[in-house]
Write a protein that binds this DNA or RNA. Structure first.
Lengths: 201, 201
DNA sequence: GAATGATTTGACCAACTGGTCAAACCAAGG
DNA sequence: CCTTGGTTTGACCAGTTGGTCAAATCATTC
């Protein structure tokens, strides 16, 4: 049983499993993924997987908790004392980069939310809500101070999430429409223009 | 076998099945949905379902093809001869209303796309792409004519899709964050402001 | 009300899936 | 070497799932 002091083999295999699981879960959803798929993607046998993780649920859970933390860090870093426009634009671009660099993570999250977030509902209405309440207050103070134009702070955040993650979550659709053009060629410019025009007082 | 002239019973049951299937597929995804769930949601027995539809795939396919058509109609209606700003704002608001009134359809679509659109890839790169190519040309002509501000027309559409559908697809997350406030209270105003500021020349 | 065709269902099946387990294998230290 | 504890696996199991089928039931029409 993997315990306190993980061996080299444990570290390597756990990492391989989580990577394979991310591949499969993000592409098929929790129910669509099978332990066998994850096992062969990780180059291990099914019983061997279940030696490292007690269940399919456990793998999914491990991925989700790790994700929730990383996913929110750009918002956490929004600095109340920084330049408002620069802070928000920085947040937007960082989120867009995460969509480009970690599309699997974005899709794992999307799968979970679209299906009603059965496994992370608590985290949403606690951790996420608290963080958002906090940061929207900051944004509201910037608005009140006349530093940025007046918009509904919550909906501003929703729009940033949706717009940036859309490039990861709806990747197939975007590529089907764009043909050869790389989505991330025009995207940074577009979102930059959009939020500058929206927020310039 | 349901054939040329559908009886009253056939019409009623087919409709009940498709409605139940939409409920279940949109909430659980294709693989997550079971025929038994759909059957009991429709108030029928499993073999009875399979009397009306030859397979689970067939139900899903029927929903998707019907959806693809309805889903694109607002874009199809974008009138090249109308007032540019009014046409685009009308499109935005109509899409937002569809998110509010048909969230199940939006989520059915989202589930399919996030998982790589295995069953509608052809429709995306044919029907959708053609329509989008057509309408972006119209938008580009409005830009060239100076009627609206210059933006990447494709990314403009992507942003409208993502922003409006986000309210349906990520409903749980949005409600978890907003608490008691109804998302659709602030949304119309927000998207209106956003696109007016973006597009006003 | 008998005949005919549409509709409904209980019983069933084969494939798949998550998970178990005892036995085998292997790495490292003594 | 050989022991010890971590690692790996083939065989297996019980529950679920999509789908079938023959028989029963129902609605309509003549």
């Amino acid at each position: 049983m993997p315990a306190a002091r993980p061996t080299r083999i444990q570290q390597k295999n756990r990492a391989a499993i989580l990577d394979a699981a991310l591949d499969v879960f993000s592409a098929q959803g929790f129910r669509g993924a099978t332990v066998d798929q994850i096992a062969s993607a990780a180059g291990l046998s099914k019983p061997n997987l279940l030696y490292y993780f007690p269940s399919k649920e456990a793998m999914h859970g491990a991925l989700l908790t790790e994700l929730m933390d990383n996913w929110l860090s750009p918002l956490r870093d929004l600095n109340p004392d920084g330049d408002p426009m620069q802070e928000i634009m920085g947040y937007v671009h960082r989120k867009l980069q995460m969509s480009r660099d970690f599309p699997r993570e974005s899709r794992l999250f999307a799968n979970e939310i679209v299906q009603g977030a059965p496994r992370i509902h608590a985290a949403l209405s606690m951790d996420l809500k608290n963080l958002v309440d906090d940061k929207t207050a900051v944004i509201q103070s910037w608005i009140t101070a006349g530093k940025i134009a007046s918009v509904h702070p919550y909906h501003l955040l929703f729009s940033i999430w949706s717009l940036t993650q859309h490039y990861a979550d709806f990747d197939v659709q975007i590529r089907a429409v764009l043909g050869d053009e790389d989505p991330f060629e025009g995207a940074p410019d577009f979102v930059d223009t959009l939020y500058r025009r929206l927020l310039t007082p």
